[in-house]
Design a protein around this nucleic acid. Structure first.
Lengths: 195, 195
DNA sequence: GTCTATAATTCGATAGAC
DNA sequence: GTCTATCGAATTATAGAC
């Protein structure tokens, strides 16, 4: 809640802060939480390591700032019910194909408790919320959202983290054609039954 | 290829080695590669840290020994074609529900290059091999295996690593009912089309 | 085989000059 | 705001006594 009461003039340090966050996201995404060092991040941003501490207090604080992520899910009530699956997977792919924040979060979530907690928040709150809105049986909403998360995060894990060749090299449109029916069934179908 | 030419008598150190590997799997599974220290593993196994080095040479060597993993996939040619999906997901869940080796591998694969390489080997060789055997179009075998890996690893990631509540608390049989049709379509269907 | 001692790094974080 | 210098802690790995 750091609401700027007065329209403060843009600080000269804002550019520095942005450079730090950009370098931090790159390092966290490439190396994970433990191996991404403050020294390396500062070197990438071409500043002194002590400035990172000054601006963000600690390594945890830096990660918290760098791993801020919003799924920006569309309003599912405005989507034709038969195209929910395609809409979702297309959105996810586009959302993080050009933003490595989620890769940073995903890699860090395996070893850093705080990152795991944030991951749970994003997919248990944002995704569950979006699924709940469009009117499935409330008793099954959590499970449907969890299943969608499992396929969507499994795609991200195999494509961006482990880089299994068939997934890392695949054309996005082909992935969408394969995975859309899966999400469609998780959202609107029932087990056993076809999409 | 260290074939024991003579039936060597069981060394007294075998029990120690097994205790080390057990402790290593627990630590790697719980903390990831970097935060699982040789000191902590040795303490868990109630031996001296230097013995770990003596037996396994390095931390990398210890991990390589502890993260040995075989999917033990069944022969898919002997499975009724309509039950391929259920057979696979049931096998996966049973295979690692009581063995934390895969959890150790999964958590380490996010940050350790060697673990990632092993992960690729397991899912690109063992799984692709099993899928290739039962006679799909060779041109699509890799993609089908990759899609299966994405859903199966996504399940493991959300259930055992990040522990999203709806997935971590779910009854295995319900997960099987939801996910079996997904794998079935990835193995035998085509995109767009229903299971 | 087992242990002590320690080498050689590396890291996050702090203190304080300018 | 920026930088140098450094602390204190933790790590893997090695050397060598017993």
């Amino acid at each position: 809640m750091t609401a700027p009461a007065q329209p403060t003039h843009p600080r000269r340090s804002d550019a520095t802060r942005a450079a730090i966050l950009r370098a931090a996201r790159e390092r966290f995404a490439a190396d994970g939480y433990e191996r991404a060092t403050i020294r390396a991040i500062a070197a990438d941003a071409q500043i002194d390591p002590s400035m990172v501490m000054r601006y963000y207090g600690s390594k945890e604080g830096l990660f918290a700032a760098a791993a801020e992520f919003d799924l920006r899910l569309p309003d599912l009530t405005k989507v034709p019910p038969s195209r929910l699956g395609e809409t979702l997977i297309r959105h996810f792919l586009a959302r993080w194909e050009g933003d490595e924040t989620l890769v940073a979060l995903l890699r860090a979530a395996s070893t850093n408790p705080g990152a795991g907690e944030r991951m749970r928040g994003i997919f248990a709150d944002q995704l569950t919320g979006a699924v709940a809105i469009f009117g499935t049986d409330p008793a099954t909403t959590g499970r449907r959202a969890g299943l969608v998360a499992s396929q969507v995060l499994g795609l991200a894990f195999t494509r961006y983290i482990v880089r299994l060749p068939p997934m890392a090299d695949a054309d996005p449109e082909e992935l969408i054609r394969w995975i859309a029916p899966t999400l469609q069934r998780y959202l609107t179908g029932s087990p056993d039954e076809a999409a």
